[in-house]
Amino acid sequence: MVTKDFSIRINGTAVGPPADPRVSLLDLLRETLQLHGTKKGCDQGACGACTVLADGERIVSCLALAVQYVGRNVVTIEGLAGDDELHPLQRAFIEHDGFQCGYCTPGQICSAVGMAAEARRGVPSHVTPDLTVGEVELTHDELRERMSGNLCRCGAHNGIVAAIAETCAGERK
């Protein structure tokens, strides 16, 4: 007998897909599961406030149907931290004042975690000078280009970049 798991693993917990296949992953997270860390910004995939990690890759959850993620692992801002400890990027955002109103912060942090993994795998960006390198160095321009899909209307960009640069440089040592 073959059984299939028709659940989505969200922050390590198996969750059944919504009955309505038109429900976005964002709405499942916020409305059904009460995970309000993931924000609804533009609802058009342009601002990045709803960024989460799906199998380690960053996605905008407002454009993703929840049913597309059956059998996959989704991590939200709530799932990044350990039991008693913040994720290193969460700590760095606090230390570098990488937020003002905080609305975009969860999406920024999830995006940065995914972005750092992309760079370690050698995934190039528009500004990567050598497309054949194994691991992409996160220079100032590289980091800003890779994070350009996440908007901050408050102007905390310098703190955001400093927090990501410090954390990602620390991971590479």
Score class of each variant (00 low, 15 high):
Arg91Lys: 14
Val75Asn: 11
Glu78Gln: 09
Glu95Lys: 13
Leu86Ile: 03
Gly98Ala: 08
Thr76Ser: 15
Asp97Ala: 15
Thr76Met: 09
Asp84Gly: 14
Pro106Gln: 06
Leu86Glu: 02
Ala64Thr: 09
Val74Asn: 00
His87Ser: 08
Arg72Met: 15
Ala64Lys: 06
His87Leu: 10
Asn73Ala: 13
Arg91Cys: 10
Glu78Ala: 04
Gly102His: 08
Cys101Phe: 12
Ala66Arg: 03
Gly102Met: 09
Phe93Arg: 00
Gly102Tyr: 07
Arg91Ile: 08
Thr105Gln: 11
Val74Trp: 00
His87Glu: 08
Asn73Cys: 12
Val70Met: 12
Gly79Val: 01
Arg91Asp: 15
Leu65His: 09
Cys101Asn: 14
Leu89Gly: 02
Thr105Leu: 06
Ala64Ser: 10
Leu89Thr: 06
Pro106Tyr: 02
Leu89Trp: 00
Glu78Leu: 03
Glu78Cys: 04
Gly71Glu: 12
Val70Gln: 12
Tyr69Cys: 12
Gln100Ile: 08
Gln68Met: 14
Tyr69Glu: 11
Gly102Ala: 07
Gly71Leu: 10
Gln68Asp: 15
Ala92Ile: 06
Thr105Ile: 05
Leu65Thr: 00
Gln100Ala: 09
Glu95Ala: 15
Val70Lys: 05
Gly98Arg: 01
Asn73Val: 11
Gly82Asn: 12
Leu80Gln: 04
Val74Tyr: 01
Val67Cys: 14
Val70Gly: 03
Ile77Asp: 00
His87Met: 08
Glu85Ile: 05
Gln68Trp: 13
Val70Phe: 09
Ile94Val: 14
Glu95Cys: 06
Val67Thr: 13
Gln90Asp: 04
Cys104Trp: 01
Glu85Cys: 11
Arg91Ala: 13
Pro88Arg: 01
Thr76Gly: 05
Arg72Thr: 15
Glu85Arg: 14
Tyr103Phe: 15
Val70Glu: 11
His96Gln: 12
Gln68Thr: 14
Asp84Glu: 13
Val75Ser: 08
Phe93Asn: 01
Leu65Lys: 05
His96Asn: 15
Gly71Ala: 13
Arg72His: 15
Gly71Pro: 10
Leu89Asn: 02
Thr105Met: 11
Glu78His: 01
His87Gln: 11
Ala64Cys: 10
Asp83Cys: 05
Thr76His: 09
Gly98Leu: 01
Cys104Lys: 00
Leu65Pro: 02
Pro88Trp: 00
His96Val: 03
Gln100Phe: 02
Arg72Ile: 09
Thr76Ala: 07
Asp83Asn: 10
Arg72Ala: 15
Thr76Asp: 12
Ile77Glu: 01
Thr105Glu: 06
Pro88Ala: 04
Ala66Val: 04
Gln68Leu: 14
Arg91Asn: 14
Val67Phe: 04
Val74Met: 04
Gly98Gln: 02
Val74Arg: 00
Gly79Ile: 02
Tyr69His: 15
Asp97Lys: 14
Ile77Lys: 03
Tyr103Trp: 03
Val67Met: 09
Thr76Ile: 03
Gly71Val: 11
Pro88Ile: 04
Ala81Lys: 04
Ile94Thr: 10
Phe93Pro: 00
Gly71Cys: 12
Leu80Phe: 06
Gly71Phe: 12
Asp84His: 10
Tyr69Val: 05
Arg91Gly: 03
Asp84Arg: 08
Asn73Gln: 14
Ala92Arg: 01
Gly98Tyr: 01
Gly82Gln: 15
Cys104Phe: 02
Arg91Met: 11
